[in-house]
Computed example of a mutant assay.
Amino acid sequence: MYATIMSATYLIVGVGTLYVGLRARQAKLPMNSWIGLRTLKLMADEDTWVLGHKAAAGYLMFAGASFTIGGILFMIIDESLIAFVSLPILAILLITTVLATKKANAAAEQYRTTKALEA
């Protein structure tokens, strides 16, 4: 039962994160208060939101793929190994989220600097 719950949870999170990353890459992730990287620089306006998320899309998709693979692994491995498999996957999520946020903020800052120089 534990493996089923963990597998379903990881698959839902993984597929959801992959979807967000794909929408961000296509510049089709609308600014909202629920989904995406919500920092002050990205929430400044629609342009910085789109550019920042487009820059971070690869990291988001990698995190989603890691979770999806973890969800599939939980279906086939012994339940006693789930905690050991979860730890590296959660570490990947943490690292990719930090890297995605840094890259998105840098892209937003570069856009704002360029826009200010043009004005």
Score class of each variant (00 low, 15 high):
23 R>S: 03
92 I>G: 02
68 T>R: 03
67 F>S: 10
111 Y>V: 10
66 S>G: 14
106 A>M: 04
58 G>R: 14
50 V>A: 04
79 E>F: 03
81 L>V: 05
42 L>R: 08
40 L>N: 15
98 V>M: 14
12 I>H: 04
11 L>C: 09
35 I>C: 01
108 A>C: 10
65 A>N: 04
79 E>I: 05
76 I>L: 13
31 M>W: 05
90 L>D: 09
32 N>V: 06
13 V>M: 10
48 T>N: 10
27 A>G: 08
56 A>G: 07
111 Y>T: 07
110 Q>N: 14
118 E>N: 09
96 T>I: 02
52 G>K: 09
118 E>L: 13
12 I>M: 08
113 T>G: 06
31 M>S: 11
37 L>R: 07
66 S>H: 01
3 A>D: 13
48 T>H: 04
14 G>D: 07
108 A>N: 03
74 F>L: 01
59 Y>E: 08
32 N>S: 08
20 V>I: 14
105 N>M: 07
83 A>V: 13
23 R>P: 00
36 G>Q: 05
50 V>W: 00
89 I>D: 01
32 N>W: 09
97 T>Q: 05
115 K>Y: 06
108 A>S: 07
23 R>I: 01
33 S>C: 00
29 L>S: 04
47 D>A: 13
106 A>Y: 00
10 Y>W: 07
11 L>P: 05
113 T>A: 15
94 L>D: 00
17 T>K: 03
99 L>D: 01
87 L>E: 01
75 M>H: 13
7 S>D: 07
109 E>V: 03
64 G>L: 02
54 K>H: 15
46 E>N: 13
8 A>K: 04
20 V>T: 13
118 E>Y: 02
91 A>S: 10
54 K>G: 00
75 M>Y: 06
91 A>M: 14
118 E>Q: 10
114 T>L: 12
26 Q>S: 09
117 L>S: 10
104 A>T: 04
28 K>P: 00
77 I>A: 11
50 V>C: 03
83 A>F: 09
62 F>L: 15
95 I>D: 04
103 K>L: 11
113 T>H: 09
80 S>Q: 12
97 T>D: 01
114 T>W: 05
27 A>D: 03
98 V>E: 04
83 A>C: 01
39 T>K: 07
99 L>H: 03
34 W>S: 10
40 L>K: 15
6 M>D: 00
51 L>M: 11
16 G>D: 06
81 L>Y: 15
21 G>I: 06
94 L>Y: 09
27 A>L: 07
2 Y>E: 13
73 L>I: 11
49 W>S: 04
3 A>I: 02
26 Q>F: 00
102 K>L: 15
57 A>T: 13
64 G>C: 03
7 S>Q: 12
16 G>K: 06
117 L>V: 05
71 G>F: 02
8 A>H: 05
38 R>Y: 05
18 L>V: 06
88 P>M: 03
70 G>A: 15
99 L>N: 05
19 Y>G: 08
22 L>D: 02
49 W>Q: 07
83 A>I: 11
1 M>D: 12
76 I>T: 14
75 M>F: 11
